[in-house]
């Protein structure tokens, strides 16, 4: 636990930022799976990551944050729990722990997203902050967040809250377009939330509006505007950009060209956004997936010999080895 405090202090530049994280939290790391488009395997990936982590001896809680379209429980092969995040938001349960139900897999629990409640999908700021605070107090080593499609502020904030945020994409133009939209939204959102960039927040918010009067169309435009405003802020903007390091996963790869798309997206993001993304792995297209979905059983358990099992192991190992120490200092 000591380690986690020190790590937070070390990475956080501004002591104010670390104030909230000085309390040692139970949870060691939060992973989030996003990607903009629907149907690209976010729930499958999130459930597989959670299962793989749990099988490695970690205590894991998988959290369905697809508010309004929750189906992580189905990917995990459990019925919709009686108590979900709806009950948490409506104060019908005392503690968030009461929403965490066992999955039948050792050390793995699931908190299901709100299915019903109208209005939960566009959650206000306060309930969101409360949820994020309570999440970190859960009795778990890892949280795996399954995010909804789209680029709502909620989804983006959950993504940015995670220590490791993974962008999923399929090797097809629609998915890539949405992945870029997602990255762009998360990117601007992150900048606008950063305390270091408060003086230029108005410019960042302007950039988020595609039809802004100053004609800021791209991160390069924003950077130029910020530099005009103050070179020092330009430097700080650059530092903040470098801190944002989403991870990339290509799903349903059928050919070598599909796999290579991950490398190309990484290169293009570096060029366009100035972002260092890490291409952490790909998953082969596997017809076992829809079979397991139809049987409402977790893929990893239903098809233990699928190549996806070892691919998942490799991705998880790699993430822990390489990024296991990361702490986000945004929230």
């Amino acid at each position: 636990m000591d380690g986690s405090v020190k790590a937070t202090l070390k990475e956080g530049q501004n002591p104010f930022e670390t104030l909230t994280s000085v309390q040692p939290t139970r949870v060691k790391q939060v992973w989030a799976v996003g990607g903009g488009k629907g149907g690209i395997g976010k729930s499958l990936l999130a459930s597989s990551l959670a299962i793989t982590l749990a099988r490695g001896g970690n205590k894991v809680v998988a959290v369905d944050l697809d508010l309004g379209g929750a189906n992580l429980h189905t990917a995990m092969g459990v019925d919709l729990p009686v108590q979900t995040l709806s009950d948490f938001f409506a104060n019908r349960v005392q503690n968030l722990e009461d929403c965490a139900v066992p999955t039948g897999i050792k050390d793995l629990q699931i908190i299901s997203g709100a299915q019903d409640a109208v209005g939960v999908a566009d959650l206000g700021h306060m309930p969101k902050v409360r949820l994020l605070e309570k999440l970190k107090e859960l009795d778990a080593d890892f949280l795996v967040l399954d995010l909804g499609a789209g680029t709502s502020f909620n989804t983006l904030d959950f993504f940015l809250y995670a220590d490791i945020g993974m962008v999923t994409l399929l090797p097809e133009p629609t998915s890539i377009e949405n992945a870029y939209r997602f990255i762009k939204s998360a990117y601007y959102r992150r900048m606008s939330l950063s305390r270091h960039l408060t003086p230029i927040r108005h410019l960042i918010e302007m950039a988020m509006d595609a039809k802004n009067p100053r004609g800021i169309r791209s991160p390069a435009d924003l950077f130029r505007e910020v530099n005009n405003y103050s070179p020092e802020m330009g430097l700080r903007l650059k530092e903040e950009i470098e801190k944002f390091r989403p991870k990339l996963i290509v799903n349903q790869a059928r050919t070598q060209t599909d796999i290579d798309i991950g490398f190309s997206v990484k290169t293009v993001c570096k060029k366009y956004f100035g972002l260092e993304m890490d291409y952490v792995g790909y998953l082969d297209y596997d017809s076992a997936v829809w079979q397991s979905v139809r049987r409402k059983r977790p893929l990893l358990l239903e098809f233990p010999n699928s190549k996806l099992v070892s691919s998942m192991d490799r991705i998880v190992q790699y993430l822990i080895k390489r990024h296991g120490h990361l702490r986000t200092d945004l929230f």
Binding site: M1, D2, G3, S4, A7, K28, Q29, T52, L53, R55, G56, G57, N58, D141, F142, D313, V316, Q317, I320, G324, H325
Partner: peptide, 8 residues
């Protein structure tokens, strides 16, 4: 480095 406990 509060290394997450066990590897898979």
């Amino acid at each position: 480095r509060p290394a997450p406990v066990a590897a898979p």
